[in-house]
């Protein structure tokens, strides 16, 4: 039979016979993954570091300029604002989903089973499965001068509040940020709801016996019990906030002014439209380090008491 044949073939072709040194076998097993990782991640990382020391337009000759590009990144007002914008997005990508998620989770403890739970999960996950570009397009339309937001404001008699949200200096960044909230809320909420259902129900019973109010319950049982889930939400969403690209690209392309410009999009524009490959690479390296610098303490803090 075929099974027999294949087995025989595999055995013949396999370099890993019983006696093979485990160490060498391990390296052979790792080699393919490491090849792709090396060729398309590690090598570009090294190239990025190298480019970041050049003044190069991507076409002509390059000249070595040392750390000049990094000095530009940390002193140029526009670039600093762009980096600050990414941090401001954390409020909408991370803080809001976690707070709303916590609120909902502590109210509906154990309500997510059955058909209602399935429908809820499905609906709240739709923003997670569509491309971020699509989220950007959908929301550009919501925020449009003719869009639903202004329509609703007009409907309840607040015409004075209507505006072109994505072109407004005060509201463009929050508006872009709330697209992120919309995308990430479902994920955070369900993580927290799942987490809370794992907390021993007797803890809540005991607290009730002691006459604890809802806040005490939340503060002393729910919050500590969800430490790890919160850590996960925070980590995942911070990475999304700092490295955002797709949503901004379609919704505002960074405008008005540079109110919603983020490092990811600026790298793209510097490298390919403005042809400052060196500066783009330096910003890329800085972005990579910033993400690590923020995420590592979060991980450490939320896993500490495990």
């Amino acid at each position: 039979m075929t099974v027999y044949k294949t087995e025989k073939k595999v055995q013949r072709l396999s370099p890993f016979r019983g006696g093979l040194n485990a160490n060498r076998a391990a390296w052979l097993f790792i080699a393919p993954a490491f090849f792709f990782y090396g060729a398309f991640v590690l090598l570009p990382m090294a190239m990025s570091a190298y480019y970041s020391l050049l003044n190069w337009d991507g076409i002509g000759a390059a000249s070595f300029v040392g750390l000049t590009n990094y000095i530009t990144v940390v002193t140029d007002d526009d670039l600093l604002q762009i980096i600050a914008n990414a941090f401001r997005l954390i409020l909408y990508f991370t803080v809001l989903p976690v707070i709303v998620g916590l609120a909902v989770a502590s109210v509906i403890r154990n309500q997510m089973s059955g058909r209602f739970g399935t429908v809820t999960r499905t609906v709240l996950f739709i923003p997670q499965v569509i491309p971020l570009v699509a989220a950007g397009i959908v929301w550009s339309w919501m925020y449009d001068s003719n869009g639903v937001i202004n329509q609703l404001l007009g409907f309840i008699g607040l015409e004075n509040w209507t505006r072109g949200w994505l072109g407004d200096f005060t509201y463009a960044l929050p508006a872009v940020g709330l697209i992120g909230t919309w995308v990430l809320l479902g994920l955070c909420m369900l993580l927290l709801v799942t987490g809370i259902s794992r907390i021993d129900a007797s803890l809540y019973e005991a607290a009730k016996m002691d006459g604890a109010n809802a806040w005490h319950e939340f503060r002393h049982i729910t919050l500590p019990g969800l430490r790890q889930e919160i850590g996960v939400c925070v980590t995942v969403t911070i990475i999304q906030a700092l490295s955002s690209f797709d949503i901004v690209y379609v919704a505002t392309s960074g405008g008005p002014g540079i109110e919603t410009m983020v490092p990811g999009l600026e790298i793209y524009r510097l490298a390919f439209a403005h042809r400052e490959v060196g500066l783009a690479s330096a910003l890329g390296v800085v972005l990579m380090l910033l993400v690590l610098l923020i995420v590592i303490p979060v991980q450490w803090f939320t896993r500490e008491k495990q």
């Binding site: 398309f40 990382m45 793209y268 890329g284 972005l287 990579m288």
Partner: peptide
Amino acid sequence: TLPFESIITPL
């Protein structure tokens, strides 16, 4: 945690 944008230029 690598943001793809960080290496898009060399890629």
